[in-house]
Nucleic acid binder design. Sequence first.
DNA 1: CATTTCTTATACAATATAGAACAAATGGAC
DNA 2: GTCCATTTGTTCTATATTGTATAAGAAATG
Lengths: 110, 110
Amino acid sequence: MKRGQLLGSLEQIILLALVRLDGTAHGMIVRREIEERTGRNISIGAVYATLERLEKKGYIRSFTGEPTPQRGGRAKRLFRIEGAGKRALQISEQTILSMTAGLKDHWGTI
Amino acid sequence: MKRGQLLGSLEQIILLALVRLDGTAHGMIVRREIEERTGRNISIGAVYATLERLEKKGYIRSFTGEPTPQRGGRAKRLFRIEGAGKRALQISEQTILSMTAGLKDHWGTI
DNA sequence: CATTTCTTATACAATATAGAACAAATGGAC
DNA sequence: GTCCATTTGTTCTATATTGTATAAGAAATG
């Protein structure tokens, strides 16, 4: 039962966060970024689980960063988006665009 | 373990199809519309399962149409998007927009 | 060694998916 | 007219994938 044509909605959001964060992203920061931008409060577990899956699919890659010199500042696991991840984002965007094109006339009042 | 902040990606696509089809949408047509616009081939079972879920959530409503006078033209179950469905679409769109705003500088080359 | 920052593990709910079974309509064969 | 094969359309069943929260674990330092 193959899948994988489109990203899940959280996958998409997290990938977009990684793009903006330019390789400085670790779990906590990704979570904060999403919350600040969208108001959506995701649990930290949800973030890591999704990052894990994205890495397994080859959309992102993770590596270990240096610990920062502060109370509890342990080494971070940093995430970076890969080419495949960017392409997946583009496909998702294109799909929604195709479905949306010229829809104004049908929308009506809400 | 509540959920329901955002639409799933297929839910979103199907809602968009319903907007365009303006109350003339039944399962087979929704499927065809999506395939023609996006090239994505979804099984008919997937379409109906999603429509079912969307109706349960109050995003769409279904009713029975007249049979058309043609070979096998049995009565159709028609689907129409409701106000709540349109609002859900807007929230999804807004969320992606927030995550996307000003991202060009970070995108780089693929 | 208690506290802080960060990650992993665990468990379960919600979505996505395919394929097969089922249902209703009708054009012909007879 | 009445079967019935064919067509159009829907529902059922079963499973994979994603989304989610909470708790447990691990490393750093004052």
